[in-house]
């Protein structure tokens, strides 16, 4: 009976003839489009930054050293999730749980370090008053941290599922999607950091 067929099965039952090319998984594809969209938002903000930096009364900002630590933490976490993906593919579930947990911890540490960086800036009298690099830094780095937080929530769900999930996990697509997103926020952070180093001076 047709009525018994669930939608998921419908999707799997898509024509599987040889004519279909081997394509990117739709979820991965969707992620890439979403990444393009997020990039446009940051492109909008950084181009606003460039426009403003050419105007009078522009104030530069000295970046707190703690952002270097957070960079290292985020890079390390990117490495962790890549290793987690590999162990998932090799069905080494204990190692996977450990590595995904480490990624999660490093991600939380990153957001925490960003918060410390903001506090140090605030103590240097870089507040919301004015319109220089400092104010942009709060907005841009803040939005980046928000995107990292989104990734953390996803990792948290995967972490919990890895322990208490009743269903056996076989498809590596969710892990791949999470890993790609995580590398993306990592690279985005590097771009923003270098941007502020060069243009924000």
């Amino acid at each position: 009976m047709v009525s018994d067929i669930k939608l998921k099965k419908f999707q799997n039952s898509l024509p599987s003839g040889g004519a279909q090319r081997k394509k990117l998984h739709p979820h991965k594809f969707t992620l890439w489009v979403a990444i393009g969209s997020i990039l446009m938002m940051f492109a909008g903000l950084t181009s606003a930054f460039i426009v403003k930096s050419n105007q009078t009364n522009w104030k530069t900002v000295a970046m707190p050293k703690v952002f270097w630590i957070s960079t290292a933490v985020l890079l390390l976490s990117s490495l962790m999730i890549q290793m987690a993906l590999r162990s998932f593919k090799n069905r080494e579930m204990n190692q996977y749980r450990l590595l995904i947990g480490l990624t999660l911890a490093l991600g939380i540490a990153f957001v925490f370090l960003q918060w410390i960086g903001f506090q140090q800036l605030w103590d240097q009298k870089v507040t919301f008053t004015g319109s220089g690099a400092g104010q942009f830094l709060y907005v841009i780095f803040g939005l980046h941290a928000l995107h990292v937080t989104g990734g953390i929530i996803a990792l948290l769900v995967m972490f919990v599922k890895a322990f208490i999930g009743k269903t056996k996990l076989y498809s590596s697509v969710p892990v791949q999607v999470a890993a790609t997103y995580w590398h993306f926020v990592d690279l985005l952070w590097l771009y923003l950091l270098i941007f502020f180093m060069i243009i924000g001076k």
Binding site: I38, M40, M41, G44, L45, A48, L143
Partner: peptide
């Protein structure tokens, strides 16, 4: 997908 995020950044500012 490519233009709405830019409006969003303008509105956040």
């Amino acid at each position: 997908v490519l233009s709405f995020p830019v409006l969003l950044s303008g509105l956040i500012l």
